[in-house]
Design a protein around this nucleic acid. Structure first.
Lengths: 258, 258
DNA sequence: TCGTATTTGTACGTATGTATT
DNA sequence: AAATACATACGTACAAATACG
């Protein structure tokens, strides 16, 4: 395998990723069933012609994906948890679409620009003279609106990306691709609100009816703010899923609270 | 430092954890400020008298905690993000208490037992003859109830833990400690419900008023179910926070979707 | 119950590749 | 183009936890 990796075109895929893909393939094929133990790391690494260190990097990935757990002295055990279930709110995505009980089959997008308000300057770390793109999106399932989004983004981000700002659909595409970008994180707040006139109209629900509000800011891994948005959606048509998880206690560490 | 690690009492703390603690201490003290680069890995490892591999294990922990990011060719950059903000719904905890706008100053707990229903048998992977502990908890802020929890747990778990089953307060303590245990994960569903008579009474809200319902099952890292619970809480008094995060793209991997 | 074998965890060292400055 | 810095990969050795006879 080491030789293959060298010959392999010029698409530098790390060896441990290849190993990860090989083993996860095995698991999907049922070569090792849930509850079983994988062969020892020494054996596996020999079989795959990689060093044990490289194999262990692959094992780490397999663990993160919930394919296996490992325990010192026991081995690497396959989980049932082929965790096919769709990912939940713990990942960045589009909750209005992802968790809608009805299929969302149409969106309406409008794009506008305005000078950054005081709040935008703070949240998006912009200078006073900056321009902010305002994207409003209404989501429909059939004839009924199931959600509404107000997205604020520094103009520069859209500009740099060579999106056709005249075409709302391309802007929407860009927004969706942005949400799927790796290495982002958010601070998100979820609460319940009561429909005032405007939103009650958009979502076609009676005034005063409750609906869900999600407010969040998105950042890159370097802490650069890239987007601030406010989502409104109907509680009747949405069920949110979350996969919650506790940190695994660091073995030997007394206290990770500090 | 290698010598120290050997002499160090007999509390086997891995060296890389010690290194992690040292560096995170430096960052808290401001030895390196946000935006700055840490010294190179070779230099750092020499300074700390550890191998570069060990240092890199510590760096991994620092990244997971959001202290630094690193980029090939640039270096390890300190983030502003001293991530002091309390953790959100992405971690297992007690949302009724954690996200209540008012301080929760009193809980009332009742404990009962019943044979496992069909649903419990499925969810908690129990045999038909099993017994399930039913824990009901009402949370108060002053005189008003802000939340209510129905917790179902296999009797064996409580039994093994030598909890005084006659004393609801100890059972509550045990439940709270359980939630803080490392290595757990959950499947959680969040939706909105309308108060029927019983809950409307408990939460002292008008019948028909909306409130939040959180249903979840908790598992150990070995996929063993340990608890199933249903939480009800008032939307007016709660704001949920979530830190959402996208997987970091694996460098060189074409497609992790598979 | 007690060793012994097995299996993962930690730590070192070295070499080379690749991205950024 | 060269220097710097992180990324990958190999190999070795021993420690610690678990399983087993």
């Amino acid at each position: 395998m080491r030789d293959n990796a060298i010959k392999e075109k010029n698409v530098k895929i790390p060896l441990y990723v290849t190993v990860y893909e090989t083993i996860s393939q095995w698991l999907k094929e049922g070569k090792y069933k849930p509850g079983e133990k994988l062969p020892g790391e020494n054996i596996l690494s020999e079989q795959l012609n990689v060093s044990r260190g490289t194999l262990r990097q692959a094992m780490l990935l397999l663990q993160e994906d919930g394919f296996i757990v490992n325990q010192q002295g026991r081995g690497n055990i396959v989980l049932s948890n082929q965790n096919l279930s769709r990912s939940g709110m713990e990942k960045i995505g589009n909750p209005i679409v992802d968790f809608c009980l009805q299929p969302v089959d149409r969106v309406e997008t409008t794009v506008g620009f305005q000078p950054a308000t005081q709040k935008h300057q703070e949240v998006l770390k912009l200078r006073p003279s900056s321009i902010v793109a305002v994207i409003n999106i209404t989501y429909y399932s059939g004839q009924t609106a199931v959600g509404f989004a107000m997205v604020y983004m520094p103009y520069e981000i859209l500009d740099d990306s060579s999106v056709d700002l005249e075409n709302p659909d391309t802007v929407y595409e860009f927004y969706i691709r942005l949400l799927a970008t790796g290495g982002l994180y958010s601070d998100t707040k979820l609460r319940l609100g009561n429909a005032r006139e405007r939103l009650a109209n958009i979502l076609s629900i009676p005034e005063g009816e409750p609906f869900l509000i999600l407010e969040e800011e998105l950042y890159t891994e370097y802490d650069t703010p890239i987007l601030s948005q406010k989502l409104f959606f109907t509680p009747e048509q949405h069920e949110l899923y979350i996969k919650r998880k506790n940190d695994r206690a660091i073995k030997g560490a007394k206290d990770k609270q500090a």
